[in-house]
Simulated scan of single mutants.
Amino acid sequence: MFFFDPSFIILIPGLIVALITQAYIQEKFNKYSKIKSSLNMSGAELAKFMLESAGIYDVTIERIPGKLTDHYDPRNKVVRLSSATYSSDSVASLGVVAHEIGHAIQHAKGYIPLVIRNGIAPVVSITSNLSWILFIVGFLFFNIALIRLGIILFSFAVIFSLITLPVEFDASNKAVKILASNLMMPPKELEGVKQVLTAAAMTYVAGTLMAILQLLRMIFLAGLIGGNRD
């Protein structure tokens, strides 16, 4: 009954937004993956150029399997590029690569939201999983203390999602500025980059919305348990 209660309706807007944004990012990436950039650089070459231009020489570049699995690992100072972007010279691939280098630049310059996010990430990875265990156990045994503790712990995941938003938007802004000023990417290609990165950023917005709605649902269910006990 817990997994099929009416409060699930609270999550529907988040699920709809998540589905739309996933379709949107796929559509934009596929569209601009077919357009070759005039920069004549592969994703790996662009990453190397941007790092060196920013005076960053302690970050390595690795190739990993998959599509849109690109990410920057701040703990090991590694930019990992997916097979879909590493050797590609498409507008979409270069935009994604530039975004990840934007994170490396943030790290090198001590961008405060990134520092905070990296600092709380290990804690959030533990509390987000533990929160659901405590919440479900508390719900099953009508233990309001465990339910409230679960909600408090899950709140850290919501905070983490909120902090992630400026980190992602700033990395995209850095990417566009570097492509425009340092590499003189043509306006039409830059527009494609912006569309791809905007679509990617919306996935984080959808994730944050989903986390907030999930927290509201937990609070709602906690209120039901508290009301029944009274």
Rank of each mutant, 00 (worst) to 15 (best):
V123C: 01
I9L: 10
S83W: 06
K109L: 11
F2W: 06
Y32G: 01
L153W: 05
S155Q: 02
I152L: 12
M202T: 07
G55K: 15
N228S: 10
P13W: 00
V196I: 07
I120D: 05
L190G: 00
T60S: 15
S37I: 03
L39Q: 09
L15Y: 14
L11V: 09
T203M: 03
P113K: 13
R80K: 10
D89L: 06
E45V: 14
G43H: 08
S181V: 15
V196E: 03
V158G: 00
A157E: 02
Y72F: 10
D230N: 13
D73N: 12
A201Y: 05
F142D: 15
Y86G: 04
H71R: 05
G14P: 03
I133W: 07
S7I: 07
I152G: 09
A200W: 03
N30E: 15
V97N: 04
V91I: 05
I101A: 06
V167E: 01
N173I: 00
A145H: 10
L134P: 05
F139H: 12
I116Y: 06
S172T: 01
M210F: 15
I25H: 02
I133V: 13
Y57Q: 15
Q195C: 08
V196T: 06
V158I: 04
F29T: 14
S181R: 14
N143F: 08
I120L: 05
T198F: 15
L215P: 03
V193A: 00
V196C: 04
P74A: 01
K36L: 09
T21Y: 03
L94C: 04
Y57C: 15
Y24G: 07
K28G: 02
K177G: 11
K109Y: 11
K36H: 08
R75G: 11
S53C: 11
S131A: 12
Q214T: 13
E191H: 01
P122R: 01
F142Q: 14
P13I: 02
L51I: 07
I61P: 12
N40R: 14
I101T: 09
Y72K: 02
N143Q: 11
W132R: 11
Q106R: 07
E100C: 02
R229D: 13
G55N: 12
L183E: 08
P122W: 00
M185F: 02
M218L: 07
F4T: 07
L224P: 09
N30H: 08
P113D: 14
F169C: 01
R117N: 11
V91P: 00
L68N: 07
L190Q: 00
N182A: 14
V193C: 00
T198I: 11
I120M: 07
A200L: 05
F4P: 04
D58H: 13
N40K: 11
L165V: 06
W132K: 12
G227I: 14
H103L: 06
V115L: 12
L140E: 12
E100D: 04
S42N: 09
G207S: 08
L146Y: 10
I152D: 13
L216V: 11
F2Y: 09
S125Q: 03
K28E: 07
S125A: 05
V78Q: 04
I136V: 15
G119C: 06
L81P: 03
T21G: 02
P6Y: 10
I219Y: 02
I126V: 07
V17M: 09
R117P: 08
M210C: 15
D230M: 10
L68G: 05
Q214I: 05
A201C: 06
L162R: 01
G43F: 07
L165W: 02
E52R: 15
